[in-house]
Nucleic acid binder design. Sequence first.
DNA 1: GTCTATAGGCAGATAGAC
DNA 2: GTCTATCTGCCTATAGAC
Lengths: 197, 197
Amino acid sequence: MTPRAARGRSSTAAMILATAEDVIQRKGYSGFSYADVAAELRVTKAALHYHFPGKAQLGEALIATWGTRFTEALASLDAAGGPALARLDGYIKLHAEIIGKRKMCLCAMLAAEYQTLPTAMRAALVRFFDHRQVWLEGILEQGRSEGTLQFGGAARDSALLIISALEGAMLLAIAHGDLERFNATVTSMVAVMRGPE
Amino acid sequence: MTPRAARGRSSTAAMILATAEDVIQRKGYSGFSYADVAAELRVTKAALHYHFPGKAQLGEALIATWGTRFTEALASLDAAGGPALARLDGYIKLHAEIIGKRKMCLCAMLAAEYQTLPTAMRAALVRFFDHRQVWLEGILEQGRSEGTLQFGGAARDSALLIISALEGAMLLAIAHGDLERFNATVTSMVAVMRGPE
DNA sequence: GTCTATAGGCAGATAGAC
DNA sequence: GTCTATCTGCCTATAGAC
């Protein structure tokens, strides 16, 4: 089955996705190859080409998978309810878990390599970031009306600032191999959002 | 001349450095090749290997060059004097100029690809970021004592936050092709640092 | 679904002529 | 200093057997 799309994805397709994702998070899209993934899974490159015809299609599937997982994580934070500050904390923890494994967010890594990506991947990337931004805007608006979060200007601009700070902090943490730096940066950011006592 | 080191660098070596820097800022270290640079300069790959024996050595030279240029830019901001807020603005402008050309900071791009870099490049990268951080800490301390900048906690943590936000904002701007987003993010950050009226 | 085999190309690098 | 020529190896991708 799984003719050429990996929709109701076979376990092999799922393993390919997981491994490719991991490699790209560490080495980037240009730095990853079918050979890497095939070797780690102990299959041949041809097997990968069966499930995903080319690197570009695999890349698109990876962004889609990542987006779905992220959406689910955000929905789960929403379902837990609670004040905006708690949801923001949960949002930050999603990033802390990734950097704890010395990886970048998949989409941040791809964003850096944007100018080398095929068109379909570029479009998917932009949609991903837009979705994140909208969710965060909602949290910020909620926090402002609750009084748990403080910020001046449009919620959109503060949402962008939070996303930027998180992704940038991960970039620095990767280079320094230093989780403490990431935590200090984020703590400092949250302190700003909570406002003066 | 220029036996194998490009110290009192020939004009060719300088052109190689400039072109390689540009390509890496757009495509990354894995995404760049001697062939790219040679073609753009209308010389052969062998000519590049004469000036820089290998990709790793060229990479090291690029970080060194970038670091020197950055240091000079910061010294020039210091020489201009003025309040901390003005220097911070100058610092931000350095980044705005780069993103205006749809490029990443060289070292931020390399940081994303950290796990693919040769050891010497890794070490040079970390030194670069440390230097930036120290300079910013100084600006922040100055701003706090002047009363032009406000922040809680250690200057180091706010310095990390500023660097993170700038690099992350560049990442998003590259993907969205949207300079306005970068400006909005940065404006929002500066507003926070100026504190409430 | 996964394999072997292989094509065709580009990567990083070197030797040696000019 | 720059070139031509060449090497070796890895890359993406395909054809066709099992």
